[in-house]
Write a protein that binds this DNA or RNA. Sequence first.
DNA 1: AATGAAACCGCAAAATC
DNA 2: GATTTTGCGGTTTCATT
Lengths: 155, 155
Amino acid sequence: MSERGPQTDLEPTDRAILRELASNGRCSFTDLGERVGLSVSAVHQRVRRLEQRGALRGYSARIDGESIGLPLTAFISLTPTDPAAPDDYPQRLQHLSEIESCYSVAGDESYILQVRVASPLALEELLRRIREAAQVSTRTTVVLSTPFENRVPEI
Amino acid sequence: MSERGPQTDLEPTDRAILRELASNGRCSFTDLGERVGLSVSAVHQRVRRLEQRGALRGYSARIDGESIGLPLTAFISLTPTDPAAPDDYPQRLQHLSEIESCYSVAGDESYILQVRVASPLALEELLRRIREAAQVSTRTTVVLSTPFENRVPEI
DNA sequence: AATGAAACCGCAAAATC
DNA sequence: GATTTTGCGGTTTCATT
């Protein structure tokens, strides 16, 4: 079984474009064309199609947490205190800007949140607000360091 | 106590620039200048300084996992099987391209990995390779859906 | 679906305040 | 540190194949 690399109907050239843009989000179409062996306008066309298809969802700057005064990252697992309550937790939590990501998960807990805060004190306050807003109990895992993050998958 | 929003020595204008680039990574300097109320070259200068300072670490395309044939996301917590072994787990794991992020954490487990794979079968094979490479036991939490992800923090 | 030409716009220096 | 100018390069569209 040689199942290495994702198999889809995505063309090799499109893969190359996505791969390049994943690491170089501001790469010019001129450079992109040279790297994937296509003319500027052909690359331009393909990128537009990838954007319209939804494969390319947008572009982000990678921002250093410490530089913006948010050096503390944590994962918070949520368990409903009332198992019969309606499952509208994401809606109840989305106003908390410290929550970067919210994942609905299978397993002991219902949700995993990834949060970024300024300090342990700010984390404590955030936990209080999460429990209040969503009626959940929390289990928090503090990140000590990040050996690597948001790597480009082998497209 | 009004500790709302991170307080650093970062200027409001720099915050505005980072905020804009976080959501619009390919925003032109012209647009950026208009949005933060600065001339093109002033913005350009500030962005270069933010990049040199390390506050701006780069730019990425946001790529839809399903479109590239990697629809399954999971969190994997690692516990060393030999507590006396040297802590070189990130090095032992970095060759596995399915691992997007690796966090060293405080708590019951030592590391949390965020991974992206093509299928449950691929996840099973990845777990086997992780256990082999790093001599760890694993606890896996499969992501069912992602209500929101990688939101822009309130810079 | 890719190409090359052409118009337009944005980038990135310079000098200047 | 911000602004204006200016040459250069990138973006985007169109006609063509």
